[in-house]
Simulated scan of single mutants.
Amino acid sequence: MDFGYADPHAEKVLQTFIRNGHLVRFPAKRGRRRILLEHIAASFEPGRRFPEKEIDVVLRAWCDGGETDYVTLRRYLVDEDLLSREHGHYWRTGGWVA
């Protein structure tokens, strides 16, 4: 599957860790994990605040059938400053914007 990135390294990372639109596992290396997390962060519209339940629905879909869980994915997104949170709401604060 082609994810549409000009960077062949990013394409390779995404092809390795995403199957049929689902995250199969997290990369061990931080650089690869960052590429993957930036791709997933693009699932959220910049400038919009999401209640935790909405974030969880999207992240559960990413984790469906893989070895990962949505809570860990959400934590990684926050830790990498791709999502911010306050009072049960999240918003996108990083990653690529088309």
Results as ranks from 00 to 15, higher is better:
residue 1 M to S: 14
residue 1 M to R: 12
residue 3 F to P: 04
residue 4 G to H: 08
residue 4 G to A: 09
residue 4 G to I: 03
residue 5 Y to E: 07
residue 5 Y to I: 09
residue 6 A to Y: 07
residue 7 D to A: 09
residue 7 D to W: 04
residue 9 H to D: 10
residue 10 A to D: 10
residue 10 A to Y: 12
residue 11 E to T: 11
residue 11 E to N: 03
residue 11 E to S: 05
residue 12 K to I: 02
residue 12 K to P: 02
residue 12 K to R: 14
residue 13 V to T: 09
residue 14 L to C: 04
residue 14 L to A: 08
residue 15 Q to L: 10
residue 15 Q to S: 13
residue 15 Q to C: 11
residue 15 Q to A: 14
residue 16 T to M: 10
residue 17 F to I: 05
residue 18 I to M: 00
residue 18 I to V: 15
residue 19 R to Q: 14
residue 19 R to L: 14
residue 19 R to I: 11
residue 21 G to D: 05
residue 21 G to E: 02
residue 22 H to M: 01
residue 22 H to T: 11
residue 23 L to C: 08
residue 24 V to C: 03
residue 24 V to T: 15
residue 25 R to S: 14
residue 26 F to A: 06
residue 27 P to Q: 01
residue 27 P to F: 04
residue 27 P to C: 01
residue 27 P to D: 05
residue 27 P to T: 00
residue 28 A to R: 13
residue 28 A to G: 06
residue 28 A to L: 13
residue 30 R to D: 15
residue 30 R to K: 13
residue 30 R to L: 14
residue 31 G to P: 07
residue 31 G to T: 12
residue 32 R to K: 14
residue 33 R to C: 04
residue 33 R to G: 05
residue 33 R to D: 07
residue 34 R to T: 12
residue 34 R to V: 12
residue 35 I to N: 05
residue 35 I to G: 06
residue 36 L to G: 04
residue 37 L to F: 02
residue 37 L to T: 09
residue 38 E to F: 06
residue 40 I to Y: 06
residue 40 I to S: 04
residue 42 A to Q: 13
residue 44 F to Q: 03
residue 44 F to K: 04
residue 46 P to K: 06
residue 48 R to A: 08
residue 49 R to Q: 14
residue 49 R to F: 10
residue 50 F to C: 04
residue 52 E to H: 00
residue 52 E to N: 02
residue 53 K to G: 04
residue 54 E to S: 14
residue 54 E to I: 07
residue 55 I to A: 07
residue 56 D to M: 09
residue 57 V to N: 00
residue 57 V to A: 14
residue 59 L to P: 09
residue 59 L to C: 07
residue 60 R to I: 07
residue 60 R to Y: 03
residue 61 A to C: 08
residue 61 A to T: 11
residue 62 W to Q: 01
residue 63 C to R: 04
residue 63 C to L: 05
residue 63 C to H: 05
residue 64 D to C: 10
residue 64 D to P: 01
residue 64 D to T: 15
residue 64 D to W: 12
residue 64 D to H: 15
residue 66 G to M: 05
residue 66 G to I: 08
residue 67 E to Y: 08
residue 68 T to C: 15
residue 68 T to L: 03
residue 69 D to L: 01
residue 70 Y to H: 15
residue 70 Y to P: 10
residue 71 V to I: 11
residue 73 L to E: 03
residue 73 L to I: 00
residue 73 L to C: 03
residue 73 L to Q: 02
residue 75 R to A: 12
residue 75 R to L: 06
residue 76 Y to W: 12
residue 76 Y to M: 04
residue 79 D to M: 09
residue 79 D to T: 06
residue 82 L to G: 00
residue 82 L to I: 04
residue 83 L to H: 02
residue 83 L to N: 04
residue 84 S to I: 00
residue 84 S to R: 13
residue 85 R to C: 11
residue 86 E to K: 15
residue 87 H to N: 13
residue 87 H to R: 15
residue 88 G to E: 00
residue 89 H to Q: 11
residue 90 Y to G: 08
residue 90 Y to R: 01
residue 90 Y to K: 05
residue 90 Y to M: 06
residue 91 W to S: 05
residue 92 R to W: 08
residue 92 R to Q: 08
residue 93 T to H: 00
residue 95 G to I: 05
residue 95 G to W: 02
residue 96 W to M: 01
residue 96 W to I: 08
residue 96 W to N: 09
residue 97 V to D: 13
residue 97 V to N: 13
residue 98 A to R: 14
residue 98 A to V: 12
residue 98 A to P: 15
residue 98 A to Y: 13
residue 98 A to N: 12
residue 98 A to T: 11
